[in-house]
Amino acid sequence: MNDVFLPDIACLADVRDETPDTRTFQLLFRDSKKDFHFFPGQFLELSVFGYGEAPFCIASSPSRPEALETTVRHTGLLTDALHKLGEGDEVGIRGPFGNGFDMEAARGKDLLFVAGGIGLPPLRSLIWNVLDERSCFGNVTILYGARTPTDLVYKEELDDWAKRADVEFHVTVDTASPGWTGTVGVVPSLFNKVTFHPESTLAYVCGPPIMIRIVIQDLLARGFKEDSIISTLERMMQCGVGKCNHCAIGHRYVCRDGPVFNYGQIKELVE
């Protein structure tokens, strides 16, 4: 039996600045033969040795297995230590954990992605997976918002999506800065720019709790069924494997039974 608490060693193959407080880290297992399969929406427990572990979504797509990536915002002790590491430095990885997005259910459907701020990384994994198998899905719409233009992550990829003919992509910021010619306003304000067919669309919503709440209400009002609105929950986590109770809501564990839930499920969770 494997020890669920034993991390694998990986080294940072590439570190990219996304925003002043957010970086993307590319991880390479030291054991090159390591089998690592995951679904979009799953997460890792990443160790910075001496500081402990924290959960981070896998931001890269399983359809591009050559680069395992995670995007991390500088918020506290462990993320501070992580941001101080550079290429070649070692970290520990456990996982992948969590249920991930149900790719099968999405096949053939129209897909609407709504992301706010640091909520894009988990969706990015799914988006690339979808785009790499583009023909299996209907319309793809991506709506993304951040506080300011500098807070947008994956700036090059955003341009990429904007250029693609098979993706409808809109981006907005709460507050513009000089040089910003795009939309200004909160994410839900983008809804008026697009048309969707609620009965055949799955909506994926990730971002700060307040944004998620507003977007979900909006989508419900537009006729989305509770089961077709899919989100990820953030919770304080320690073990990632349904043992420590930190992430428990009701009798479910966000780390094991989530972090992906549809709105119908979220509503039923007893705090």
């Binding site: 160790s47 001496g50 500081y51 402990g52 320690q238 420590c244 109770n245 930190h246």
Partner: peptide, 9 residues
């Protein structure tokens, strides 16, 4: 059985 995981040393 609640617990946390921490590095000591």
């Amino acid at each position: 059985y609640c617990f946390s995981v921490k590095d000591l040393g």
